[in-house]
Design a binder for these strands. Structure first.
Lengths: 342, 342
DNA sequence: TTGAAAGCGCTAACAT
DNA sequence: ATGTTAGCGCTTTCAA
């Protein structure tokens, strides 16, 4: 059977194609009787209006693209789940833009908004995926875009995320209050704004406490269990072992804890560990992980709502949406103990 | 600045719109010189061909939709990550169809393939989201569709997944070999084909070993940490406590272990726990989780490759793609110990 | 309340 | 090698 279209339904129902269109899109503009007739004809043959044609005509794709580093990351997936939910509730679909950190892919996904495939972008990256100025795009003619958790460098872009600086201060102070001085840091990619701000926060807290940071205890870790594992191994090679490790993600923290356990270190007896994110697993592991909670669902929901408003032409009332973070003290952190294994 | 289109580029480059189109799509059909001229003109104003118009004309959206129960589930997200990667490599985008188990949403997402918004569907559900027969779709005029991990009831649909029956047999036998008799089962939704087959496998293994199944030890659990938590709590209320728990997902298993630990039970000393999936966390927890590994990435890759071939008109050479599962014995299972706490 | 008709921006067959 | 042109299937004025 050939693909059936609006014309077939019009013929079948004995009306014009305009009426069929209205029956679907503007129920108020056709008589109830006609509408029923049309819908019945459509249902009979399983007709569904072609979305592409509609989108072309209206210049609205009904899609947004979520550009994120890794769907398989627990924090990311919590955010994107909320994005999808919010978008769906407002009639939008979401295109998955898993970049694995590749700038090239970020650009490819972002380009979907320039080719009409998407009406807007949620960008969880610190890189601007468009060329701005220099005969190219002006900042005010970007496609609707909201920055999630990172900052791409333009104040004109709405962004939603936590206050990374303060969050790191809170995490560091928790450790400092517990008497820790030899604090190791496992950061994320230092090219990202979130990692930089967190490092700044950590530095500030340490400085305020009059503790000198041991640079050899500041290492980079990919935001994965394996990243944490590698970081912990390198940290344990140091002669001056840390009494606490502050990790920029829970997956890193959990990776660290596995290594510590394997090497016979007790957490938190010998070494305290604190993470970031509060992924669902955090409170189920042993010991339950102390962490800085981020409201992943709220972040996703806010990103999506903001973007959809932007698409609808509403100017956001504010550009910086700072979501609350919270120090969740569980059992992976404890006061320094002099008799600890080092 | 008004939206610029192919006509503007044609004018700018002093060629026809057909030539512009060819310069982009069929580089071989225009002279190198013309091509460059066109591309330069396009680049100068940041022109990108309208994807919707192209899709409408070619009747190809370049999108597939992945219908999955929950992106935030670690097993699901591993699969969808591979789907996205494979699709992207072949020039396709993926629409995220997170259903939270809702049949309604499954239908909505599936409908995207009927409205031209997607060229095919990867369906990780046991429900057929289209009405088949009765004046509606015939089974052979379904949109390209591949079933992932579940079976929607039509042999005509290619499907990829593990052999759930045998996998459950393997898991049960592992426990039986360890001397366990009071084995609890935390299943998934029994409406799903995977859960049913796993239950069948478990029953078979128990029957073959001459062990009677205690129905009170067979409970349902949502595939989440919370689901495992709830299941474990209910299991611990039974007077005849299990010496082992077989869970249909790792998240359930990890949820169980947290409750067991909280109640003072040693795993595996008092109670053995085995999961399903082998999510990344499984080997990082304490004790590392014994589980039935599923090749999530391969499943995703195979689903996508199969679907893309289907879209290209290639008939799959076989309908059932059984991916290998593997029993990974780690430290959460051990022989029954008579002196165990019960 | 309904219909006719002009596109949306592109592709592809056909012509030059 | 390049151009002309007829749609793809819909939405949306405008007229009846």
């Amino acid at each position: 059977m050939a693909k059936i279209g609006i014309k077939d339904i019009a013929a079948k129902a004995g009306v014009s194609i305009a009426t069929v269109s209205h029956a679907f899109r503007n129920p108020g503009r056709v008589s109830e009787q006609t509408r029923r007739k049309v819908l019945a004809a459509a249902d009979e043959v399983g007709y569904a209006p072609n979305r592409l044609a509609r989108s072309l005509r209206t210049a609205r794709s009904g899609c947004i693209v979520a550009i994120i580093p890794d769907v398989a990351d627990n924090h990311n997936s919590g955010i994107i789940k909320a994005i999808e939910k919010t978008a769906h509730a407002r009639g939008y679909s979401v295109l998955l833009g898993d970049t694995q950190g590749s700038p090239q892919r970020e650009r490819e996904f972002a380009a979907m908004a320039r080719s009409g495939q998407a009406d807007g972008i949620i960008l969880m990256s610190h890189r601007m995926p468009f060329r701005i100025g220099e005969g190219q795009l002006d900042i005010d003619e970007l496609p609707p875009l909201v920055n999630g958790c990172e900052f791409a460098g333009y104040d004109e872009l709405p962004m939603v995320g936590i206050d990374d600086f303060t969050a790191a201060v809170d995490a560091a102070n928790h450790l400092i209050d517990l008497g820790h001085k030899d604090i190791a840091l496992v950061t994320g990619d230092m090219a990202t704004t979130s990692s930089r701000r967190r490092l700044d926060g950590f530095s500030r807290a340490m400085a305020d406490a009059g503790i000198e940071i041991n640079d050899r205890l500041v290492v980079y870790g990919e935001y994965t269990l394996g990243g944490g594992e590698a970081a912990a191994r390198s940290l344990l090679m140091e002669k001056q072992r840390p009494s606490a490790i502050l990790c920029f993600s829970d997956e890193i923290a959990l990776g660290c804890m596995a290594v510590l356990r394997e090497r016979g270190f007790d957490v938190p007896g010998d070494i305290s560990v604190i993470g970031f994110d509060n992924i669902p697993f955090a409170r189920y592991v042993a010991p339950p992980l102390t962490t800085i909670a981020q409201p992943a669902a709220d972040i996703g929901t806010t990103c999506a709502a903001l973007l959809l408003d932007l698409i609808d032409g509403k100017r956001p009332d504010k550009m910086r949406h700072v979501m609350p973070h919270e120090l969740l003290v569980r059992e992976s952190t404890a006061p320094v103990f002099d008799g600890r294994r080092t």
